[in-house]
């Protein structure tokens, strides 16, 4: 058993370098690889081989974590294509989008203050529906249109939406407890 540490995570799991992936195939390949590189299998071998198996196991785990969820997967895919999604540097989102985000946050804040869990649940559903549409857009940009600059912008938008979803869930949890 050996793993080419130079290949990218898509290659590692035998997947095409695309945003849309076969999640079942990823899961299957992960468990298969994990079983083969597990450090227990190398316990009787010299230290150098043990160290190598540790590196493989780390690579397999990190690869799985990166590809399993759509946002890290998209960010990684863009990185492989030489596109920096600008998550840490790009603060100039479209004003319309930021205004919408402000309004969402205000709605969450108000519902939370009023203890209105029904409103929060509705916001949760609306945001999830909206996220689904935006993820579809991201898939088209990455895989069908090869519009990577557009995809980078969409990833940035989704980062805000994910944070918002966390806030809604936090508010719901706080009200329930």
């Amino acid at each position: 058993m050996s793993i080419d540490l130079q290949q990218d995570f898509f290659g590692l799991f035998g997947l095409h370098r695309r945003f849309r992936i076969d999640e079942a195939a990823l899961e299957f390949a992960y468990h298969d690889l994990q079983g083969r590189v597990h450090p227990d299998r190398f316990a009787h071998l010299p230290d150098s081989e043990k160290r190598l198996s540790m590196q493989w196991a780390t690579q397999v785990n990190e690869g799985f974590r990166t590809l399993r969820k759509p946002l890290p997967r998209a960010t990684y895919l863009l990185e492989l294509l030489g596109i920096d999604a600008g998550l840490h540097t790009n603060t100039a989102m479209s004003p319309t989008f930021l205004m919408e985000q402000m309004e969402w946050r205000e709605a969450v804040e108000e519902a939370r203050a009023a203890g209105d869990s029904e409103e929060l649940a509705q916001l949760h559903t609306r945001l999830r529906q909206h996220s689904r549409e935006v993820f579809d857009e991201l898939a088209r940009q990455c895989d069908d249109e090869q519009d990577y600059a557009g995809a980078a912008e969409t990833v940035r938008r989704l980062m805000f939406m994910e944070k918002l979803q966390h806030e809604i869930d936090d508010a719901l949890e706080a009200l329930e407890s």
Partner: peptide
């Protein structure tokens, strides 16, 4: 209006 994607601020 500005926003930081990494933390969603």
């Amino acid at each position: 209006m500005v926003g930081a994607p990494a933390c969603g601020d």
